[in-house]
Design a protein around this nucleic acid. Sequence first.
DNA 1: ACCATATTATAGAGACCGGTCTAGCGAGTT
DNA 2: AACTCGCTAGACCGGTCTCTATAATATGGT
Lengths: 196, 196
Amino acid sequence: MVMMASRGETRAQVLQTASSLFSRQGFHATGVTQVLAEADAPKGSLYFHFPGGKEQLAAEAVSVGAGELGQVIDTLIERAPDPASAITAMADLLVARLEGSDFADGCPIATVALDAGADSTPIRAACRAGYDQWLASIAGYFAGLGVSAETASELALLALSSLEGALLLAKTRRDTAPLHRVADRIAALITQEVAA
Amino acid sequence: MVMMASRGETRAQVLQTASSLFSRQGFHATGVTQVLAEADAPKGSLYFHFPGGKEQLAAEAVSVGAGELGQVIDTLIERAPDPASAITAMADLLVARLEGSDFADGCPIATVALDAGADSTPIRAACRAGYDQWLASIAGYFAGLGVSAETASELALLALSSLEGALLLAKTRRDTAPLHRVADRIAALITQEVAA
DNA sequence: ACCATATTATAGAGACCGGTCTAGCGAGTT
DNA sequence: AACTCGCTAGACCGGTCTCTATAATATGGT
């Protein structure tokens, strides 16, 4: 007579673990066995909670990870006194994640997007939705500062692209300097653009 | 009586195929069987040419891919009449690669770097070397235009980061617009910076 | 209070493919 | 002819994702 976990609890735990592992290792490097083991979840329950199998698990995991980081970004932006601070705050967040995880935790979307986005439409859709959510947050912030909607969306795209690229270089070099340097330049550019 | 490929030919062919496949699919999603099959290379000869196995193959494949794209970049830069053209030429190159491959061919380093860089030191070293080579090319170009060495290297970092990030978003959205928008902004910024 | 039934959850095995290695075949040379 | 060297086919072990048969809990009628 073995206790069963209560409804929904196991699913959430698996999803949380999956989000972390997929984010660090990518789709193909992460096995469902590893996810279930680290989540202390029973081996066989995967296909009950996620009938779509590994693909569904990954898609939902990306959504969870993107949503969580999105909320942190929203908070950061809210508290930023000016656009330059908003950019550097986001960069500092990424730096802290890198340093706090021996350069394992980067962007919760990027690795999966590159590694599985080409093969799986649902996964790519989840990645795209995550990025769109972030872009909307950042663009909304800029728009609130008085720039046109189109400019706001372009600056958001520029900011996110630069940070993602810098994050990629930082991970590859195991050095957070690219993140700092790029963020400073982009912050200056955006300050100038918002002032105009 | 079966003909054997002449010395070195098979190795180069395998390396070329591996470069293409790892670049598109990443490390863990690409099997050595697939590489050898697509290269029309005998199954067993992998460990003769690459005693380090899949890891060595991937590291060398990244070097090859990075070197080839690096040469293209060098040519592009050489022929650019001004720094803005250099940036947009690089972006156009990436756009052409995406469009010519149904969004499969992006950066020959990025996917492998994120997907295997954390696990394998040799692979990460190859990725890093590739990026460093590109950065040196771009920074050298800027330095030749009269800006200080430090500024040149910072602008190169900014340009590469932005393009890599925009490429990631473009692949995820299957839309080259991010690449165009980001390149235009960065080109303007760099023009302004070089003029100063 | 009791049992039948539907729902929720799980263990373990099945089918398959991964990278790796070793024993042996081809060709060129003495 | 015999020997060496370059090269390769095929099998090995381990791990992958997936599925089905079964256990545990909740529900509702009598």
